[in-house]
Write a protein that binds this DNA or RNA. Structure first.
Lengths: 188, 188, 188, 188
DNA sequence: CATGAATGAGACTTCATTCAT
DNA sequence: TATGAATGAAGTCTCATTCAT
């Protein structure tokens, strides 16, 4: 198998398990089953693997929403499917998301993050544009700016519920409903 | 002067300047003007200063919104004042907020963060309850859950604008308006 | 109570519990219930408390053998009482003895140790002299030199049994008998 | 050259010169001519080198007694050769023996010491068994237990003479004779 | 005499990085 | 390309000792 991919996979695993700062290069190479020096043939530092991981996460998000949001459903249902998809993925990959968000706020390479995140913004932009054309949401909405707001509130809420709160299922369900109602009203 | 406070202040300063991970204990004590060993009389590690910093930040937020939100204004204006206050503070203390958010997502002591953040949640809860009693917002809103949503979207957006985007003033103004409109609709 | 004695007692306690090298001055003062600086009014270092401890141990040995060796018994019995007394004390104070022996072999102040140990050598010398005069042991024995041999073999054996071996009672009993027989023969 | 052996040899040297407690890892690596970090590839602490040193010392003892005790001599002579061999070695390697004995009484790994010392006990056991079969010593002697007594008294006496007393040659000679006579009688 | 907060030298240990094989 | 033993800079943390009160 490709050594570079081997390193990326191993890094995702150990980063998820112990966090970025507590991970040593030696942990990664041990997990990857390669020699210490080999790592440096592909990456100059553990931090430089992060963009690869971010791309992975974003592609997972896109895949999840594409799979779950049924464009033939009515808008109400699509909104619910969208939020549900993000929640599900956040739950399933909580450690991975945690380190991504941590990486986002820390990093000096903010511009890079934006580029990597761009596909999700684009997805949301098109989602809103479609809705606008179908008359499902307010006319005065700016799809680009509202896309940011939508992503912000959905991800932040998912983050709160799954990463911080260790919430019980019932509370998650209620917060989910409140968010859906909030967003629904916001868009109309 | 109280050595503990000296350490906290110095830590805020150097954390803000170089980030948590790039800060050495020696940086903190140099800034504080104390001996290396003295640090350890008050804190077991640089990370253990974080909760103190978080308390500081939250008290700054509360102070800022209390100062700027005029409870005698109409609700529309109060909402604008609230968002504006958070935006202003995020702008002014962007480095400090960055490290707080990073700390939040990293930490193992999530329950602790919740406790520290509680005052802001409480503030927002009371803000919404008042509005509900005055008939300014929808009856079916759950103030506790919506408080979380409000904080999530306002802070996330401020974060995006001031910490990541390095946005130009005009874009900030437009995004501010879009957020205000979004939230206004969401609550009605 | 006398602060110096307070320090000595506390030092015996913590040295016994954690060994000399693992003991910090702060452990001693905490145990003694005095301030950090007070220690230095009485001793320049933790090592300088050792001679005091050694004196204590030697006086304990003398006391124990004096109490248990009945000079009116026949020599055979006295020998048994002597060995038994050393064994009992070694068992009861094993930690204390361990650190004394460690201190003995480490120290640069060997001459000092000899002086401190002198009373036990003297006791043994007189014990043998008496036996010689009573015709209980060989005429050609040199009491001074044999005193050293006696102390060496009794203490070493006790040390082995109680400090190293964690021997079971039965084995201790058998080794005790073997030693008694060995010494008995050696002296006749 | 093998780095591990390099470290062991260097450790023996510096331990002998300045004692275990006064030795810093940096002293060892300087002596060994290796980098600081290299030490930790082979040993987790300076104390963990001790067992290796102990093995070395025990093998030296075995070698010395094997070389000097002539199994074709009569028992009296063999006994003298045995004691003489231990005395000579203790004299020649006094510092090394000192630190071994100190290590013995300190260590928490007592069981380990026993294992390391086992070869000498075995040697002595066989020495006594042979003598018993030849009718050179008492029939009622238990070789295993008496082996312990023999080692205890010979080593303790050597230790006293060479490590503590800084005795003059004449006194050593006399104590040697007294010991030989003592042991001779003890065994018959 | 007694205190104990403060000091700072210095030992420990880690781990990213190199480089000869 | 790949290896992994070796390196040594750099940071952590301890703790004996001091000294103003």
């Amino acid at each position: 198998m490709d050594k570079k991919q081997l390193i990326i996979d191993a890094t995702v695993k150990v980063f998820s398990e112990k966090g970025v700062e507590n991970t040593k290069i030696s942990d990664i190479v041990k997990e990857a089953g390669i020699a210490q020096g080999t790592f440096y043939l592909y990456f100059p530092s553990k931090f430089s693997v992060m963009p690869e991981i971010a791309k992975l996460v974003v592609s997972m998000i896109i895949e999840e929403v594409d799979k779950n949001v049924n464009l033939t459903s009515n808008f109400q249902d699509q909104l619910e499917q969208l939020i549900s998809a993000v929640f599900t993925l956040t739950d399933k990959k909580s450690k991975l998301f945690t380190l991504l968000y941590a990486g986002l706020s820390q990093s000096e390479h903010l511009k890079q993050w934006e580029d990597i995140y761009a596909p999700f913004y684009k997805w949301m932009f098109e989602f809103l544009e479609r809705a606008k054309q179908n008359g499902d949401i307010r006319e005065d909405i700016n799809s680009a700016r509202t896309a940011k707001l939508m992503i912000a509130i959905i991800e932040s809420t998912a983050e709160q519920l799954y990463l911080y709160d260790e919430s019980v299922d019932e509370e998650i369900e209620l917060q989910f409903k409140e968010l859906l109602s909030f967003v629904n009203n916001a868009l109309n």
